[in-house]
Amino acid sequence: MRPVGTEPFLFYTTAHIVELTGRTARTLPELRDRIREVTGSSIFHHTFGALQDRPFAAHRYTSDFARWTSEVLQDWPVAERLAFMDPTEFPSIRELRERILQVIDDRLIEEGETVPAPPGREFHFSQTISVIYPVGQEARTLPELVTGIRRASARSLFFHLVEARLRIGRCTNDLSCWLSDSLGAPDLARRLDQLDLLVTSTEDLRQQVLAVLEAPA
């Protein structure tokens, strides 16, 4: 491992504004049809956005789709299968969307008749507009990276560890990439890649990351 990275690690964060699409679903077939039509940022909003907003619920509802099919449609088989899906395991929104559609299609083949949501409990599709900006902190060494992670907000950690998978396109994160490519520490990077991202709070995630980075070599 090099004492100083060849490039600094720049800490970023995000601010989101939610945009309403006007699209709604009242039944499982309608949900499937809308999921096909909506933008990738809408799929992001209802999967990754749900994880960011409700980390404590990550083990029960890994997406808004899982929550709605459970709480509102009370279609347990599809709700359980959707809840079992971990969005962070998918390297792209396209693959995530395809998997969600497959789960719903399978259910519709099993059970042709579906119950509609009661009035007022329709699924409303929204999408996220993301503003990404640097927070003005950088790290050139491992101790500086540790300090930065201690200081980082929950949003910044989510951006670098969870959302990063979509940007990088494989099952890794910004920290691992920097550790491996810039600091020459591929073992540390591999250990970070193995972390379970479906934790119950961002603080848990921070502690897990720190435990890896601060473990004796």
Partner: peptide, 12 residues
């Protein structure tokens, strides 16, 4: 909400 969240709002 913590200093990090406030600094991020200022940054925005």
């Amino acid at each position: 909400v913590g200093i990090a969240a406030i600094e991020e709002i200022r940054g925005l």
